[in-house]
């Protein structure tokens, strides 16, 4: 459009460099912190790069304390929560996948009725969902605990799945409803003339055509569920039901756990969602803007 001048281009490159530095700074920090020992971190408090690298931090986490490696040879204490790393990772995956599927099923049913079935109260429903998106989790923490305790759903993955689904459903509906609006009405009408019921047209025409929208929504819900700390932390206190964020939070304030191990477990927890976001970038971007501006 407007070709920037030479000086302008230099300025733009510098501005981009500043933004990229800011974006990558914590990632560089977590990587460098995780590939050295407690000793090298403490020995030279000025050096950015350590004199020697080690993967012992990852080794001890990924073998759940079995293989200590050189770095942890002398260590007598390892937090019990690190010893259930695989269980926690599996729990995180089970919860995130179940929440994503359940939210997509329930959300697409509601979103379709909001965007396609012209009934008066569905518009009201949309507004309720917009408002529900604003409820801070902290408000729900205490009553959610009491409700789930009386339902006997504490310390179970299903309890967490249902709680997270309820919390994320309004957001999913807000992403999906505008997407269903964009699906052509003619195809649906054609199917109905050929004898398809309304619900059948939804299943056979609208849903298959909405794959991109469903992917956007699913990717976002998966990421938020993967990241959730508070809901899981309140509902599950037993170790076998903890997810990765809960394990990480339990290490906060443990004076015997040093930054090298902390950074390693943080890196392992953020890697799956970073890979997912980078692979599905296009869908995540579409979903984020659909859920925010179109109502």
């Amino acid at each position: 459009m407007f070709r920037p001048t030479f000086l302008g281009r230099v300025g733009l490159h510098l501005a981009n460099l500043a933004v990229i530095t800011f974006l990558l700074f914590p990632i560089v920090a977590v990587v460098i912190g995780s590939i050295q020992s407690e000793k090298t971190l403490q020995a030279d408090t000025v050096a950015i790069l350590p004199p020697e690298y080690t993967f012992d931090n990852f080794r001890i986490i990924l073998t759940q304390g079995e293989q200590k490696g050189r770095v942890f040879e002398q260590a007598t204490y390892l937090p019990d929560n690190i010893k259930v790393f695989y269980q926690a990772a599996l729990n995180s995956l089970i919860v995130a996948v179940s929440v994503t599927l359940l939210t997509l099923v329930l959300g697409s049913l509601s979103a379709y009725s909001i965007s396609r079935l012209r009934v008066r109260w569905t518009i009201w429903l949309l507004q309720v969902n917009v408002a529900a998106r604003f409820v801070p989790i902290i408000v729900l923490m205490i009553p959610l605990y009491v409700v789930f305790r009386s339902a006997g759903m504490l310390n179970s993955l299903w309890g967490v799945v249902i709680a997270q689904t309820g919390f994320l459903l309004p957001y999913a509906i807000l992403i999906l409803a505008p997407y269903f609006e964009t699906i052509s009405h003619e195809l649906e009408e054609a199917a109905r003339i050929d004898g398809c019921s309304r619900f059948g047209a939804f299943l056979r025409i609208v849903l298959p055509l909405s794959t991109p929208g469903l992917s956007s929504c699913g990717a976002i819900i998966f990421i938020i569920s993967w990241q959730d700390l508070l809901i899981t932390m309140i509902l599950n206190s037993r170790r076998e039901f903890m997810t990765l964020p809960v394990i990480i939070a339990s290490l906060v304030g443990d004076v015997h756990v040093f930054f090298n191990l902390l950074m390693a477990i943080c890196l392992l927890a953020l890697l799956p969602s970073v890979v997912l976001v980078m692979l599905l970038q296009k869908y995540v971007v579409q979903g984020l803007s659909a859920g925010a501006v179109k109502g």
């Binding site: 974006l23 914590p26 920090a29 977590v30 990421i223 990241q227 964020p245 930054f259 970073v274 970038q281």
Partner: peptide
């Protein structure tokens, strides 16, 4: 470089808040 920035822009969105907090406590 703007295209590089655009590619990297979404990266922080993927980082779990609690991991983000711990990383910065190291920083």
């Amino acid at each position: 470089t703007s295209r590089v920035t655009r590619f990297l822009m979404l990266l922080p969105y993927a980082v779990p808040p609690i991991a983000n907090g711990l990383i910065w406590s190291f920083i």
